[in-house]
Design a protein around this nucleic acid. Structure first.
Lengths: 164, 164
DNA sequence: AGTATATGGTTCCATTTTGGAACCTGTCAA
DNA sequence: TTGACAGGTTCCAAAATGGAACCATATACT
């Protein structure tokens, strides 16, 4: 299977990864959260080739994760900023950070820690059930066929019922 | 910059993505959560070439996300199972699922929904501060230099202080 | 005994993707 | 006028990938 076909799977992971699952895209989004906005600053920060960066930025704009904001009319220069769709990638990045802090650190501890403005404490965000507020672990979750699959079944489309 | 150098960054995102930031690896881990364990089952599920799959499985074993478990001594056959290090990738996958459900669905709704065994309800896990239990949003988080950077500074290593 | 089939690979090659260097264009500042 | 800067595009060699063919072992079927 070619990568472009991967998002044909009825799976939000496959569809998400089809958008930001390549080598550079999430690092670009990471930089955007760090308030990097301009082409040359992304390039300096990432060490990516201009060619690739240009390509990735355009794609991120196309899919609506970044938007271009004019900042110099004369020279037709744009900044790249996160949209709401982009901002909501925060949990993805934060969960990668937390995994990396635990499993991919040299011995010196987390490079970055996070203060929660609302309570003033250093926070290690955790996933909880929105119904009972207990922390989520993989073993306590049962995946079930959802409306996105059910609707297709009713329509007679053939789908796989695999679930995470 | 070449991709192999990316994990030299003192950044847990870069280091995490260096491990599972390529096209197929997270999909393999997804399947592992779905109890796919054998070479041919991964291949059927993913449509990845055997070559690539062999390569990725071995890498995942090398970095300790999967382990090989002998299931047929005569034929020297192994299953691939998530280790603890792998199981803890669950929040990464779950956050991708939630983003995908919201932003990368066709109109039919989530393909899969999740029941929380402990409370019996359909859950939409949320990220909360472990100190005050308020839901986390990108804007309420202030990144600060952590021990992983401070230690290096004290040692005189030159590091960047960027943070998410 | 002989053949077929399943599993889990490896080898090879053509196609794609990538990194890096060189080049381009418009503007501004000295 | 010269040079620097931002933000690209073009080109090529190197690396990653997909797909097909091949292989080795063990069991299962006839």
């Amino acid at each position: 299977m070619r990568w472009e076909e991967i998002d044909s799977q009825i799976c939000s992971i496959a569809r998400g990864l089809a958008i930001f699952g390549d080598k550079w895209t999430l690092l670009i989004v990471r930089d955007a959260f760090r308030r990097v906005r301009r082409f040359s600053d992304f390039q300096k920060s990432l060490g990516i080739s201009k060619h690739r960066l240009s390509d990735r930025l355009n794609r991120l704009v196309d899919v609506g994760i970044l938007s271009k904001v004019l900042y110099d009319e004369k020279r037709d220069r744009y900044e790249y900023r996160l949209t709401q769709k982009g901002i909501e990638l925060y949990p993805v990045l934060m969960s990668v950070v937390q995994w990396g802090d635990k499993w991919a650190c040299d011995g010196d501890g987390s490079p970055v820690v996070y203060e929660h403005k609302l309570c003033g404490h250093e926070t290690r965000p955790k996933y909880v059930c929105d119904q009972c507020d207990e922390e989520i672990s993989a073993r306590d979750i049962i995946p079930k066929v959802g409306p996105g699959i059910e609707t297709k079944l009713l329509r007679g489309q053939v789908v796989s019922r695999d679930g995470l």
